Structures are given as structure tokens and as C-alpha cells.
Amino acid sequence: MTANLFQPYQLNSTITLNNKILMAPLTRCMADDELVPTQMMADYYARRAAAGLIISEAVIIRPDGQGYPNTPGLFTPAQIDGWRMVTDAVHRAGGKIFAQLWHTGRVAHSSFFGGQIIGPSAVAIEGSVPRQRELTYEVPKAVSHEEIEQLINDYSQAAANAIDAGFDGVEIHGANAYLIDQFLHHDSNRRTDEYGETPQNMARFPLAVVDAICERIGNERTALRVSPGAYVNMKGDSRDRQVFDYFLKQLESRDLAYLHIGIFDDSVQFDYLAGSASSYTRAHYSKTLVGVGSYSAKTGAAALSENKFDLLAIGRPFIANPDYVERVRDDQPLVEYSDAMLGELI
């Protein structure tokens, strides 16, 4: 029932995956106080190298992108060296690994870096920071045109740093209500300039980031995660459909390594998308698509056989089962995930 998961998959002429099971990005907050990856993290990723591709936990591109404690960065020499230790360990174990490049935008908090948080518009989210519940979210500064250009440069530099650190490529985090996604939804983007109001304007910054990274490291090593449906830290808006109709059409011509859905549960139906996030994206994007969101190996394999997407990303089961790929291949029972596992790297 899961045999199709174990077929090789050619992303492009540069990268071929050993199987179709990807390890989804999983924030673990296990970097040191300088946001440098540790030996424990290298061991953690190496134990999961049987995945066709590991997508790293989200990696901060610059200090003001930090929204959670001890999340790793990729903007200092020490952080690059730390990640090189991780990628070397994964490669020695026969695996491949992409870095997920991240700026949290208005989900950041000034206590982590001592400065102003930023976003498309001066609109805050409600609530407090996970794992730091005493910190409530702040009103961001709406970024200027000059600051947008600097962000594009910083994303590009982070991609170059990732290649220097030994990653096989990068996945731009354009999902889950973080900075890039904030530009693509009307709830968080209230701008009236050339970065707001219309689909073309709202997609301008995300596409500029994609293009800058493709130019810097090659489109074959560049992937993107997207959330057409607003489902966390953001309210949905029926006008968002027009933004993503345009955005996905533009991405189609970029020839990326893959497009990855950002959703916790892909059974969620969005009225303005006329279905699930993955079914909507598949209908508007014909190239390599990664599905995710509460799939098991069996339900994911069935989705692949029905052409709902091309590759399957697995999240929390990989935390509980470092040998997830082997267990599925050998039809062995899985260890059930629990939140208690988040406190340690196994």
C-alpha cells in the first residue's frame, strides 16, 4: 500500500531523491543562545537521513526575524559553521537537506533582538509568544520601500549562506502567516502602495524574494512553501483567492525545485478556495507539489496514487520515530508522538 513512497523522484537535472518521503520542517528551539546549531542537532538530523529530503527547521535570515526562543539563524559565521556540521552529518548518512529560510515578520518579538518588529502593515496579531507566554505580541512597523529592498537582499544572502553551509538547496518559508505570507493576505496587508491592494502588488515582494534567490543559487535549488488558506495568526478573506490565483500562475514559470503546502491539517476546507489547500494548489500549479498535514504513510501514498501531489512531507511522526522511513518500509508499528517529546532531541 505504500510502495509508491519508495520510488526515486527526480526534482530536476541536479537533484534526485531516494524516495518520496520528506521530513517536514519542525521547529524545536534547540539552538544555543547565539542561535548556533549544536552537535545534538547534527545527530538529530543524521538519524533521519533516510528521508528522501530533510527540510530543516525554520532558520532565521536576520536578527529581527526571531519570534521564538533558541531558533537557529543563518546570518553569522558561527551559525554557518554550525549548520555545516549538521549538513556534513546528514550527507555522511546518505541524506539530502534543504534549509527553510524564515523571517517571522509581525510574529517576531522585540525581546529577542532589542529592536522594532516589522510587517507589511502596522497591524498586530493577538495573543502571546509560544514558550514565552509572558510576551504579548506588538504592533509592527510597516516596512518602507528601502527596507523591502534590504529584506530581498537578506533573503538572497541567507540562501548563499545556506549553500556555503553545505545545504543541497533552500525552501523559502512563504507560509503559516510569517513575513512573506503576510504580504499575500488582506488581513495582514493593508498597504495602498505598489505592495498592496491588488494581486499583482501583494505578490510583488514574495516574487522578488523568489527571483533573487533563484538568481543567487539557481532555481533548481530553490523551493517555496505557501499557505493559500489563512488558518493561523491570520483571518481569511475571500479576496485572498485572487492573490493566490495570480501568485501560483507566476510561480509556474519559475521552474522551482518544488512547491510545498503549508497547513497543519489538509482535510480543512476553505470556502474561498472551494476545497482544501492542496486541492486548490494542485488545480493551479502543475509542477512538483509537496503535500503535508496529518497524513499517515498509507493515506499519503493513496494521495500520491490519486495525483493529489507528488511528494509527501511527514512532521511529528518523524520526531517520535527517527527511523520513520525504515519502519514504514518494513511495515513496523510507529511510536506515537506526544508533546512531551518536544523537550528532547531523540
Rank of each mutant, 00 (worst) to 15 (best):
Gly236Arg: 09
Arg254Thr: 11
Lys287Ile: 09
Ser188His: 02
Leu251Trp: 04
Ile261Leu: 14
Ser286Lys: 11
Val243Thr: 12
Ser253Asp: 12
Gln269Glu: 13
Gln269Lys: 06
Ala257Tyr: 06
Arg216Tyr: 00
Tyr272Gly: 03
Val268Cys: 03
Ala274Glu: 15
Gly275Asp: 06
Glu194Gly: 12
Arg254Gly: 06
Tyr246Trp: 14
Ala277Asn: 15
Thr281Phe: 11
Val292Asp: 08
Ala223His: 04
Phe244Ile: 07
Ala223Cys: 05
Glu252Pro: 04
Ile263Lys: 00
Tyr195Ala: 05
Val210Glu: 06
Ser286His: 11
Phe270Gly: 06
Thr222Lys: 07
Cys214Ser: 08
Thr288Asp: 01
Val290Met: 07
Asp266Met: 07
Leu207Ile: 12
Gln269Cys: 08
Val232His: 01
Leu273Trp: 05
Leu256Val: 06
Leu207Val: 07
Asn219Pro: 11
Ser276His: 04
Leu248Ile: 13
Leu289Gly: 02
Leu251Lys: 13
Gln250Pro: 01
Pro199Trp: 08
Phe244Trp: 05
Phe244Ser: 02
Ala230Gln: 01
Leu184Met: 15
Thr288Tyr: 03
His186Phe: 12
Asn219Lys: 14
Lys287Asn: 12
Leu224Ala: 02
Arg190Thr: 10
Asp265Ala: 10
Pro199Ser: 07
Phe183Ile: 03
Met234Val: 04
Asp266Val: 08
Val226Leu: 14
Phe247Pro: 01
Gln200His: 12
His284Phe: 12
Tyr246Glu: 09
Ala257Trp: 04
Asp187Lys: 09
Pro199Asp: 03
Glu215Cys: 02
Met234Glu: 08
Ala257Lys: 03
Ser227Gln: 10
Asp240Ser: 06
Ser227Arg: 11
Leu259Lys: 08
Val209Leu: 10
Asp271Ser: 15
Arg239Glu: 13
Leu251Ala: 14
Glu215Asp: 08
Glu215Phe: 00
His284Tyr: 13
Val209Met: 11
Gly218Glu: 04
Gly229Ser: 04
Tyr195Leu: 09
Ala203Tyr: 01
Arg221Ser: 07
Ile213Pro: 00
Arg282Met: 13
Gly293Met: 11
Val232Ser: 02
Gln250Leu: 07
Ala283Arg: 14
Gln200Ile: 10
Tyr246His: 14
Val210Leu: 07
Leu259Arg: 10
Ser238Asp: 11
Arg190Glu: 10
Glu197Val: 14
Arg282Leu: 13
His260Glu: 03
Asp265Trp: 15
Asn233Ser: 06
Thr222Leu: 05
Asp193Thr: 09
Gly229Lys: 03
Val292His: 10
Arg221Trp: 01
Asp240Leu: 04
Asp271Val: 10
Tyr195Thr: 13
Asn219Ile: 03
Ser267Met: 05
Ile263Leu: 00
Phe183His: 10
Asp255His: 13
Tyr195Glu: 10
Gln269Pro: 00
Thr281Met: 13
Phe247Thr: 05
Gly262Ala: 09
Ala203Gly: 02
Phe205Ile: 06
Glu252Asn: 09
Phe264Pro: 00
Tyr285Thr: 09
Ser286Gly: 13
Gly293Asp: 09
His284Trp: 12
Ala274Gly: 15
His186Ile: 00
Arg221Glu: 04
Phe244Met: 05
